[in-house]
Design a protein around this nucleic acid. Structure first.
Lengths: 340, 340
DNA sequence: TTGAAAGCGCTAACAA
DNA sequence: TTGTTAGCGCTTTCAA
């Protein structure tokens, strides 16, 4: 591959001039600029980004840590991130960490050694350890899909409020025994989605003066199969729910399956409410009533925010921004009014 | 951030020795090695990968060009790729090209300038232009999910055979009017999945002595909504199908929806066969009968193959490997025997 | 408007 | 076993 010297030699200029031309500096005459570009094109020269990285100490790469790209929710978020990066001339290094701390920290380390300009971090948890890791390595970070009390920028929704709204909708349909299928609670740390959503669920029930049954709380793993099992167990229990709130769409679909397998129907016998609003919601039968998270926007806004942080870094460190995006109740066919 | 000089100074050795220690060269005494690592740890030093890249002329990065990561099929493939890369100490730069040539070539260019060690390319098409681009830039490439006559390595399934098997299964259930919803055909180029699958479909019908109705061929965009419309149109047509073969699961789900919306049932009135076997297949009602592509394996094997190609590059260029993986008919509930 | 030269942080050949 | 030194391909002062 040709390098800057080759171009300089053929164009009869110094490498500094070639560099200037390719960096669009004003102080190169149009004539030499043209000559340089012509020759570059001819021999197929384009500047090496790794070499540039070393002098500029900037990679124009964002690191992306997510639990699992094969999950449609993250696919959508990542799509928003990548599209935005492309607009701003950044590239994305993708890392799947499966919510495992060890893998997360390993990736943080690798990304840091790769000199990425910043990291978008998406995980079921954001702990003090994570915060310290980013801080000590002095690397800009934006949390996607998750809020935090810590001094870190994020783009998320209000999970408490979203769950509260979801359950209130079920209550408004006349439901009184409403089950919930949530994810791992990790010792009820408040930073965890599952916990915030569980709280919102309880608050709604309590405000309505309804019983909160422990038997109607089930934990699963955010996947359809796990929720299928959880829902089965719930349906076989002592207290029979008339509605189930699953805190992810995939889990809701698992729950619907369990209902059918138990010889019941959704929504005629049991209503099911999801969370996320992935593409599939409108495609399945019954179409899933759910809480919509703006996944693409979460990704896109997080990326833009991070890029702004990176590019304003010298301009004095600003307060990390904390953005809460609106969620939205999507009423479809999986929840119906209770029959008297 | 500390660099190699800082460590060398504090450890009273030359930077060469530090470099040797971190590269696990045999010719460093255990004693100095320990001293170096201790100090490195203390001041938080780890080698800069961009700097190493420049001397070694190797990034340990694979470029990944896919149409759209928000599509679950690609999520699964990418997951296989990333997992494999992680094992071999590679990282992945993710690029969404939306099947648009212009964006594909732009990304190929960027990746090349980033000195990625190789590219995994996944697109609905692999054209001579693509081949030439990779060749002229002298960059190792593996095609994922797509075969080619060109001199390029790939990991794929036999799309013709897979469609042939799918349709034969429908025929074995007694269906005679079988519709197909395929993707864009792009002038019937043979390298296109849709074309290969359409051919397999026709072959099966012809071999069984069945009519091939033009009215039962519909084109859509691989998405649920597009297939929904296409299926509607087919159902309103002159020739009524008793089964529909959609060449992606998402399209199959759209088709099932259209069937319901037309007041019909699946599979009682019309059977639907999908293609891919994404996670959702077992979660929807009816559970989708489909052709399973080993998506994760396609990604994982493509990545391993590319890494092998990269690491054997000096050992003389070997013939590009062409691997066809097995597909599998997954019988679930969306196809049933025709009633007489 | 251009060029010479130092340096980004590292590896590797050669010498000691 | 260790050190010296010349790059890797570029950007950026400083000088002309």
């Amino acid at each position: 591959m040709p390098d800057i010297k080759d171009v300089a030699k053929l164009a009869n200029v110094s490498i500094a001039t070639v560099s200037r031309a390719f960096n669009n500096k004003p102080d190169v005459s149009e004539k030499t600029k043209k000559k340089i570009f012509d020759i570059a094109k001819q021999i197929g020269y384009e500047p090496s980004i790794p070499a540039r990285t070393l002098t500029k100490r900037k990679t124009n790469i964002l690191g992306l840590i997510v639990p699992d790209i094969s999950n449609p929710y993250y696919g959508e978020v990542v799509r928003g991130i990548e599209d935005t990066c492309h607009i701003y001339s950044y590239n994305v290094i993708l890392c799947n960490a499966d919510n495992r701390r060890e893998k997360e920290f390993q990736y943080i380390d690798i990304l840091k050694n790769r000199w990425v300009d910043g990291i978008i971090f998406h995980s079921d948890y954001f702990l003090k350890e994570h915060f310290e890791a980013f801080k000590s390595k002095n690397i800009p970070v934006v949390l996607a899909g998750r809020a935090t009390e810590l001094d870190t920028a994020y783009v998320a929704i209000d999970n408490f409020k979203a769950a509260y709204d979801a359950v209130n909708y079920l209550i408004s349909l006349g439901h009184e025994r409403i089950g919930i299928i949530h994810g791992p609670l990790d010792g009820m740390k408040e930073t965890v989605d599952s916990v915030a959503r569980l709280m919102g669920y309880r608050k709604a029930l309590e405000e309505a003066g309804l019983n909160v049954y422990d038997e109607l709380h089930m934990e699963a793993d955010f996947k359809a199969k796990g929720a299928f099992l959880a829902a089965k167990k719930m349906l076989e229990g002592r207290i029979k729910p008339t509605a189930i709130f699953a805190i992810s769409d995939m889990m809701a679909m698992g729950a619907i399956n369990a209902i059918y397998d138990s010889g019941l129907r959704c929504p005629e016998d049991i209503s099911v409410m999801g969370f996320d609003n992935i593409d599939l919601c409108e495609v399945t039968r019954p179409a899933l009533t759910t809480i919509a998270q703006p996944m693409y926007e979460i990704g896109a806004i997080a990326a833009r925010m991070l890029i702004k942080m990176i590019e304003n870094r010298e301009t004095g460190s600003i307060q990390p921004k904390k953005i809460i995006l609106d969620h939205k109740l999507m009423i479809r066919d999986s929840c119906s009014r209770i029959k008297n």
